[in-house]
Design a protein around this nucleic acid. Structure first.
Lengths: 257, 257
DNA sequence: AATAGTCCCTCACGCAACGTCAGGGTCAAC
DNA sequence: GTTGACCCTGACGTTGCGTGAGGGACTATT
C-alpha cells in the first residue's frame, strides 16, 4: 500500500507541511494512519481528498465549508457547482474589466511618455535584458537556486489537471503548426512562421510568470540545443525540428528589434 | 474639486469602508484631506492610487509590498502596468478554463445523476491522466520522419530510424521506472532509485556526446525545473514528476563523490 | 428647535489560514 | 554512534480585514 509522509504529500500537492498539519488539526484531512512515533502517513484516498480540497480552495471557499461539502454525502453537488460557476464568472468579469482599465491607462501613459523619456527608457530595458540573459546562462551550468526556478515552478502550482492539460494541448498545437512549416519546406527565417512563433513565445511567457525581454526568449533557443532531453523530445516530433525551432526563434527575436 | 467621502469611494471601488480605514491606518492610502470633524475626504489622485492598489491586490501582492512599489520614486508605471497586464490576463485565462471545467462537470452531472459522485470524479481524473499520457506517447512516436530537410546540426543526426527509436524507448523506460517510484511513494532521495537515475545519466551522457562531470548532470535538474516546456511534459507523465525527478537527480549527484 | 435617519469617527477584539520559531524525538546510512 | 534529514507538538505572530461598541456629525423634516 502506498504510504506517504508529510513531506512527500506536501511536495506532490505543492503545499506546505504546516498546511497538512493544519488540515489535520481542523479535521479537514486526517492521515490514513498515524505511526507509533506519531508520524502522519497518508494513502491514495487522502491524496484524492486533498486534490478535491485544493480545487475548492482555488475557488476561495473557506476550509470549513469545504469540509462540510466533502463530508456531507447528501450534499447537492449540482447546486454547489452552479453557484460556484457564478462566483467564477463574476471574478472573470472583474478581471476582464480590469484588463480594459489597464489597457486604457497604458495607452494614456504611452501617449504621454513615449516622446519624452524614450532614451532613458530603452536604457532601463537594456539593463534588464542583460540581467535576464545572464541569469539564463548562469542557470545552464550553475546549479544554484534562482528566482526563475521559483517563478516557473510557482506557475504550475495550483493548476488543476484540466488546466495542465489545456496547456499541453496548446503547446502541442503550436509545435504542430511549426512542424508543419518544417514539413512544407518553409525556411525557419520566414515571416510565415511569425504567428506561430509569437504564440510559442506567449506560451513560454505565460509559464514563465512574467514578461521577459525578447532576448531572453532568443536565449532559450540555445538552451534547447544544449540539452539532450530537449533535442530528443523535439526530434521525436520531426527530424531536424529542434534546430528548425531554434533558428526560427532566434530569427523572430532578431526581427523584433 | 471632487471630494468623496468614505462611503462614496467604497461604493465606487467596491471595497468596504473598513478597508479604507485600514489602508489609511497602515499609510497605504491616505485621504487627500481630513475635515475638522475628522471625516476623510478623497480626491481624484487618491482614486487613481486606489485603483493601482486594487490591481496589485488582485495579484495577491501583500499590502506592504504594494506600498513600497507605489512609493518607490523609481517606479516605472508603464513597465509595471504592462507586466501587470500579462499577469491579469493569465489569471483571466485560468478562470476561463476553470469555467469550462465546471460547465463540463455540470453537464456530466446532469446527464448521469445516477452515478456516484466519487466514482464519476475519480473516473474523470483517471481517464484524463490516461488520455494525456497517451497523447504524449503519440507525440513521441506518431509523426512521420523526413530526413531530407535535415539541418545537419542536431544531436540525433546520423542515426538510423531504428537507433532513434531504440533511444526513445530507452528514455521512456527509464522515465517510467522513475515514475513508478513516485507512484509507490519511494522518496526521491532513496537509494532504491539509484539504478534508474544512473541509467538516466548514462542516457543523457550518451546524448551529450561527451562525459560531463556529475555537477553538470545535477545542474540539469535545475534546468528541468526552470523550463516550462520541461515541467509541462514531465507533469504530463505524473503529477509532481518534474520535482520528483529533479530531487532524485540532485540527491544522486550529491552522493556521487 | 427637536427629532429622526443616515453618515462618520475611534478603539478594540475576532478570525482564517497558515508562517515561523522553539524544543525535542526519529530514522537511515555511513 | 554520530551525522543529517526528517518528524512531532505547542504556541505565538501575521495579514487583511469583519464586526460590534460607544459616541459625535450632517441633513431633512416636522
Amino acid at each position: 500500500m502506498a504510504r506517504y509522509t508529510v513531506k512527500q504529500v506536501a511536495q506532490m500537492a505543492r503545499i506546505s507541511i504546516r498546511a497538512l498539519h493544519h488540515y489535520d488539526q481542523i479535521g479537514l484531512l486526517k492521515p490514513a494512519h498515524t505511526g507509533e512515533n506519531g508520524y502522519r502517513y497518508y494513502g491514495r484516498e487522502e491524496l484524492l481528498r486533498l486534490q478535491q480540497i485544493l480545487i475548492h480552495r482555488a475557488l476561495d471557499i473557506p476550509l470549513a465549508e469545504i469540509g462540510a461539502i466533502l463530508d456531507d454525502p447528501g450534499f447537492d453537488r449540482l447546486t454547489a457547482l452552479e453557484s460556484q460557476r457564478t462566483r467564477v464568472a463574476e471574478q472573470a468579469d472583474r478581471l476582464a474589466s480590469m484588463l480594459r482599465t489597464i489597457d486604457r491607462t497604458i495607452a494614456e501613459l504611452k501617449g504621454d511618455r513615449a516622446m519624452k523619456d524614450a532614451d532613458l527608457y530603452s536604457g532601463v530595458i537594456d539593463s534588464q535584458k542583460q540581467a535576464q540573459y545572464e541569469a539564463w546562462l548562469e542557470e545552464k551550468y550553475g546549479p544554484e537556486i534562482k528566482p526563475e526556478i521559483d517563478a516557473s515552478r510557482g506557475k504550475m502550482d495550483g493548476l488543476s489537471e484540466d488546466e495542465r492539460r489545456a496547456m499541453m494541448d496548446e503547446l502541442k498545437s503550436i509545435e504542430e503548426g511549426i512542424a508543419e512549416g518544417l514539413r512544407k519546406g518553409i525556411p525557419p527565417q520566414s515571416h510565415a512562421l511569425d504567428p506561430m512563433i509569437a504564440r510559442h513565445r506567449d506560451w513560454v511567457q505565460a509559464r514563465w510568470g512574467r514578461s521577459a525581454p525578447v532576448s531572453a526568449y532568443a536565449g532559450l533557443a540555445d538552451v534547447y540545443l544544449a540539452h539532450p532531453d530537449f533535442v530528443a523530445r523535439y526530434e521525436s516530433i520531426e527530424t531536424g525540428f529542434a534546430e528548425y525551432l531554434a533558428t526560427a526563434m532566434r530569427s523572430w527575436a532578431g526581427r523584433q528589434e
